[in-house]
C-alpha cells in the first residue's frame, strides 16, 4: 500500500512537527510529548483538552487556539495516547481554574483519561471529563462512539471557557451540547493504516458500509451503494429520530479523508433540501474534512439542535487551524 511517509512508526511525530512548522503563530508542541498546545494561554481560564488516536486530522490539533482547545494529544494512529500524555496536556492547560477533558467514547481513551485525571488530582489540579457519543449507528447507548459531532462540542465548550466561566459551567454546557448532537456515517471505501499492508476491510465497487466509525472498523450493515440523495435521505431519517428538529439545527457534513469536496457539496445540497422538505430550520451548514478516518472514502452527517446560548457560543470567534471565521 502506497503512503506519503518515511517511517510508519514516526508518522505522528513528523505530522506534529509539520503542523508546528506551518502554524507556529497559533500552536506549539510540548517538548518531549505528542501534545500540541495553544501558543498563548489565558490566565484563570478553564483549560480545555481533547485528544485520542491520530488518523482523524485535522482533529484534534486543528482545533487548538483561541476560543476552542488549549491542548490536544495525538496518540499513535487509531490508538489512545497513554495516561502520561493526557497528564502532560492537563498540566499544560491548567491555568488555575481546572481542566475539562473532552473525550470521544472509546474504552482506551476513557481509561487513559481517567488514569491521568487521578494523577492530576493528586497534583492538586481540578479536572472534569465529558464523553462524546454522537454516533447513533450503535444501538447500545453505552457503546456509542464519538465521531464528528465532537468538533461542535469543542466549539461550544471552548467559547464558554473563553468567557471565563467556571469548570462546572463549561462542563454543563458541553453536556447539554452532547445530548443534542447526533451523527451517522457511510463508507464507500475502507482506510489503510500506515502500519498495515491492506485496507481494514474490503468493499466491492457496488457496496457501501453503513454505520461506520472512524477507525476502519466494520459498520453496522453492508448495502448496495446508493446515490448521494438516497444516502442523505437514509442518514437524515435515522438522525432526525434522535435530535429535536423542532429547534434550529447546525448541520455538519464531514468528509472521511478521501472524499472530494465536489462530492461533499453534492451531499450537502441533498441534505439541506431534504431537511427543508421536512420543515427543519437549518441555521448553518459546515462542509469539509473535520474528523477523518485516514484515507477512508465516505461521509458523516451530524445534526446539532441548538438553543440561544449554544447558538451564540457557536457563532463566537475562534481562531484555529481548521475552525476559522468561515465556520462562524
Amino acid at each position: 500500500m502506497k503512503k506519503l511517509m518515511n517511517d510508519s512508526t514516526k508518522i505522528v511525530s513528523q505530522f506534529l512537527d509539520g503542523l508546528v512548522a506551518s502554524h507556529g503563530n497559533l500552536i506549539k508542541r510540548l517538548e518531549g510529548t505528542e501534545v500540541i498546545v495553544r501558543k498563548e494561554m489565558i490566565p484563570n481560564k478553564v483549560g480545555l483538552i481533547s485528544g485520542g488516536g491520530s488518523g482523524h486530522e485535522p482533529a484534534h490539533a486543528g482545533y487548538v487556539g483561541t476560543g476552542m482547545l488549549d491542548a490536544a494529544i495525538a496518540g499513535e494512529v487509531f490508538t489512545s495516547p497513554g495516561a502520561d500524555q493526557f497528564l502532560a496536556a492537563i498540566q499544560a492547560a491548567d491555568q488555575g481554574s481546572g481542566v475539562l477533558l473532552i473525550i470521544k467514547n472509546y474504552n482506551g481513551d476513557v481509561m487513559n483519561a481517567e488514569m491521568a485525571m487521578e494523577m492530576a488530582e493528586a497534583k492538586g489540579i481540578e479536572t472534569a471529563m465529558v464523553v462524546v457519543n454522537d454516533d447513533i449507528a450503535v444501538d447500545d447507548v453505552e457503546n456509542r462512539r464519538g465521531i464528528a459531532g465532537t468538533v461542535l462540542i469543542h466549539k461550544v465548550a471552548g467559547a464558554k471557557a473563553e468567557q471565563l466561566a467556571s469548570l462546572q459551567e463549561v462542563k454543563e454546557v458541553a453536556e447539554r451540547a452532547i445530548s443534542n448532537v447526533r451523527s451517522m456515517s457511510v463508507a464507500l471505501q475502507a482506510c489503510t493504516l500506515p502500519s498495515a499492508s491492506k485496507p481494514s476491510f474490503s468493499l466491492s465497487d457496488t457496496q457501501m458500509e453503513v454505520g461506520i466509525g472512524i477507525h476502519g472498523e466494520q459498520g453496522m450493515s453492508r448495502e448496495d451503494v446508493l446515490t448521494s440523495y438516497e444516502i442523505a435521505e437514509l442518514l437524515v431519517s435515522h438522525i432526525e429520530k434522535e435530535v429535536d428538529v423542532t429547534k434550529p439545527v447546525y448541520v455538519l457534513v464531514n468528509g472521511m479523508g478521501s472524499t472530494p469536496l465536489l462530492e461533499q457539496y453534492v451531499f450537502a445540497n441533498d441534505t439541506v433540501s431534504i431537511l427543508k422538505k421536512n420543515n427543519v430550520h437549518v441555521e448553518k451548514m459546515l462542509v469539509g474534512d473535520y474528523m477523518t478516518s485516514l484515507d477512508m472514502a465516505g461521509i458523516s452527517l451530524t445534526l446539532f439542535a441548538i438553543d440561544e446560548e449554544l447558538h451564540s457560543l457557536l457563532q463566537s470567534k475562534a481562531t484555529t487551524i481548521q475552525w476559522t471565521e468561515v465556520s462562524q
Binding site: 488516536g53 489512545s80 497513554g82 500524555q85 482506551g108 481509561m111 487513559n112
Partner: peptide
Amino acid sequence: GTTLVSKVGGASGPL
C-alpha cells in the same frame, strides 16, 4: 506497568 501505559496506549496500555 507505567511503561506499558505510556507506550502501548489504547485500551491495552492501561489494562
